[in-house]
Amino acid sequence: MSSHDTYDTTGPRDVASKTQQARMGDVDDRFNSRLRELFGSTPFILTKFDAFLNWARSASMFVLQFGIACCSIEMMGTYMPGHDLDRFGTGVPRASPRQADLLIVPGTIVSKFGPRMKRLYDQMPEPKFVVGMGSCTISGGPFQEGYNVVKGAEEIIPVDIHVPGCPPRPEALIYGIRKLQDRVQHGESAPVTVKPYELEEFGDLDRDEVVRELANDIDEETLVMRYNWGDSP
């Protein structure tokens, strides 16, 4: 084949292909690569299985396609040509939570959306990671004093990385995701967070004043989230 001629057939590569031939039989030249050359005569590397998995995991994260508020516009800007998040292996938003392992929370979470976000998070398969984007996901941001605003994503789900800003610039988001990838690669897990807001069955709640008022409207089995605004930070 003519393409053979263009290869340099001396040096370690020669050895490599001999070994390779011995082990794998005749394979096409196309399977040879610089990497193979570097490994020299052995096509094996020795590593811990976990380390390998973590490395692979960090280099190919699937983001949930998830937009909430203003920050999601900047997040989309980060996917787009100007900043191209895909360069770091994180650029394929998945529309279904069941195919995603990274949740970027881009925006203000309000009471009505809290249970939905929790549900989406629960639907993602383990291991899963969360990047909180913007001040809103840290504390409620500019809307912290709002009667309807959850004071940060961490009130509902654990967050690995917080990216501050309103909105954070694309560069900042990329930095945050790179940080997360570093952590994933080194096997560091999400910090344990206190999660005051859980989805519970209505029937399981303590019968206090609020619950009694709603008892006629809500079914025992309906899932509810109870917001104790007075205790929020």
Partner: peptide, 27 residues
């Protein structure tokens, strides 16, 4: 704008913002 289960009217004068609220996730 607010969930069906909300109690009170937040832009009214005597609304208590610290009162707990329940929000349902109906099937």
């Amino acid at each position: 704008l607010l969930p069906e289960t909300w109690q009170g009217h937040p832009l009214g004068l005597d609304y208590d913002q610290d009162k707990p609220q329940l929000v349902s996730l109906s099937e």
